[in-house]
């Protein structure tokens, strides 16, 4: 897949075209899977494979840097965080639908992103709770999105949002507490029914 296609889709998506993500997702999945396999072949088994680095590498390879016109590094991180959230949550929902016998097709990337059942339920519940947190404090929900879904460090998150690392740290600690408490109150994840 030529990089420009991904770039074009991404531009459409960030411009508000919601259908673009449906075409974008499988492309990114495939690239991630390919890279993961390549790394596993090349690296020794006891070598740490940094998944964040992997995702960044996938982005850099897929997207034509000259055309993508990231406003800056921060913008790149922010978009990558949103993307990863969409990809993982959609994937989790698809897995759940399939388990319930729904008609939706699971994308052929289970080898690359094989979420344990518990994990996918957690992701779906988290996604909902994050939307509620965004209503209380939009920035705090972004901090969680970048830290958790995009796997950014505190320093990278601070850079992406243009705030201090101390603020990121505070947002993370209290936001994390709020989310965990919320998920508890909403009942066990096992019985959570998506949609």
């Amino acid at each position: 897949m030529p990089p420009t296609d991904v770039t074009g889709l991404l531009q459409r998506w960030t411009a508000g075209d919601r259908s673009a993500i449906d075409q974008l997702t499988p492309l990114i999945y495939n690239e991630l899977r390919r890279l993961a396999h390549r790394h596993l072949r090349r690296e020794r088994r006891d070598h740490t494979l940094q998944s964040t680095a992997l995702v960044h590498e996938a982005w850099l390879r897929l997207i034509d840097q000259k055309q993508a016109k990231w406003r800056d590094r921060a913008h790149f991180f922010a978009v990558s965080g949103q993307m990863m959230r969409r990809i993982l949550v959609d994937h989790a929902r698809a897995q759940q639908r399939e388990k319930r016998g729904g008609g939706a097709q699971i994308l052929a990337l289970n080898e690359a992103i094989d979420l344990p059942r518990q994990r996918s339920l957690e992701l779906i519940a988290l996604d909902d709770a994050l939307q509620d947190l965004a209503r209380l404090d939009a920035r705090q929900s972004q901090v969680i999105e970048l830290r958790f879904f995009a796997g950014l460090s505190i320093g990278e998150t601070a850079e992406a949002l243009g705030i201090s690392k101390a603020t990121v740290n505070r947002d993370w600690i209290t936001g994390r507490a709020w989310l965990l408490r919320e998920l508890d109150r909403r009942g066990p994840v096992e019985s959570f029914s998506p949609c």
Binding site: T48, S51, L54, I113, I144, R147, T174, W178, L180, R181
Partner: peptide, 19 residues
């Protein structure tokens, strides 16, 4: 809640590889 270890402490991307 803040004192528990939880799934939030492990980025889901970790599922990409056996790491």
């Amino acid at each position: 809640a803040s004192e528990r270890t939880a799934f939030l402490d492990r980025a889901p991307l970790a599922s990409l590889a056996p790491t």
